[in-house]
Write a protein that binds this DNA or RNA. Sequence first.
DNA 1: GGGGTGACGCGTC
DNA 2: CGACGCGCCACCC
Length: 105
Amino acid sequence: MEQSTFEKIYAVVKQIPYGQVATYGQVAALAGNKRWARVVGYALHVNPDPDRIPCYRVVNKDGRVSDAFAFGGGNRQVELLKAEGVVLVDGCVDMQRYQWERPLY
DNA sequence: GGGGTGACGCGTC
DNA sequence: CGACGCGCCACCC
């Protein structure tokens, strides 16, 4: 069955392991096209299943959480990440250390 | 069916 | 280094 762009995006986000983060572009690329970064943002915005879709593990390319609304009320995303052992410096994630690398099978 | 917007990314000025 | 524009897709009016 053909999964919609959103479904693919959600599938990728769900695969993000504990204690790691991914960028919108990364998710978009794994979903099929890196140009979907914008769609990824929208997809997480609607986030139909926040319980399975850890949108807080998705940050922008700078390792910075969304400077916009931040899906819950600001620093909630940061708190959740820190709770997983992710070190955030001034709200920035050390991407070189925590950026999720999709295992190459 | 058309137009505008958005939780992004990258190139260019 | 900051600001702006473009692209790409999905959604709302």
